[in-house]
Design a protein around this nucleic acid. Structure first.
Lengths: 138, 138
DNA sequence: ATAGATATAACTATAATGGTTACAACGGTG
DNA sequence: CACCGTTGTAACCATTATAGTTATATCTAT
């Protein structure tokens, strides 16, 4: 089965580090904690930057949050690294046969149901913020 | 981004057809409505069969439900085609650095949060059953 | 025996992912 | 000003799941 990309968990890891150790969080330092290649971290930090979650100090190194940890939810992070698009977690087979009553309607019917399911998941993510996580890193 | 496989939507389509047109639902007939190759349908029907949702008539052709449509939920179907495993919708990067407080705890902390999110989605799927869908195929 | 089904193995093309190397640009510090 | 450790990206590769295809074996009513 196909899982949601580790970009998301790595992004959470990265933001947690920045929230905790604030400074001295260079890409290499984070990559060492995550245990991956620094380029992976820089790519993800680029997305988080674009989403307005953090600010990076080019040349000098390190990054800092642009919002307080209480204001950054898992949903914000999830959206930032675009592991899924709005209403597109589930893929629906395309071009079903329109001459069949089921084929003609399946797409719309399923779309609304699956959108609800995706939304339920995302709303659960929205309930957790970064500061709730960082208190658990002792 | 990576989406949940169309196996799921095709399985729903397939079961809907069987629920509606009961007989004369051969693999080729279903494949024509779904607009894909019959082998894809047979593979999915094999999974639905293994999950105890339907019964196939080999040789003669066609299939029938083993439970009433009210008793088959989207979650049942979702599980049957194993698009995701229990608690594994989100992939978490592995082997984070244990010498770092964040790296040491991230896995457990995230696992419990993400399990909740996945569960919220699945519980929403469990609320819809096949008969609710088939009434919308007119 | 045959015709029309299902069952399944083997193979292919495609696409996302995760990782790597390479290099340009930035910005303090000596 | 030159250097060094950064960040920012582009380009490339290996791996994997998916979706589809072809081919073949098996089943069952007629």
């Amino acid at each position: 089965m196909k899982q949601i990309s580790t970009r998301f968990s790595i992004a959470v890891h990265t933001l947690s580090l920045i929230a905790v150790s604030s400074d001295d969080c260079t890409g290499d330092f984070i990559a060492d904690s995550v245990n991956t290649n620094p380029v992976i971290i820089r790519r993800i930090m680029g997305m988080l930057k674009k989403a307005g979650l953090l600010e990076v100090r080019p040349g000098v190194g390190g990054a800092s949050l642009l919002k307080s940890p209480e204001k950054i939810t898992l949903l914000d992070i999830y959206r930032a690294v675009n592991v899924t698009e709005e209403n597109k977690l589930f893929r629906i087979h395309d071009d079903p046969n329109v001459r069949c009553p089921v084929g003609r309607n399946i797409e719309l019917v399923l779309q609304s149901e699956l959108k609800e399911a995706q939304s339920a998941m995302e709303q659960r993510l929205a309930q957790t913020n970064l500061s709730q996580l960082t208190t658990r890193f002792k």
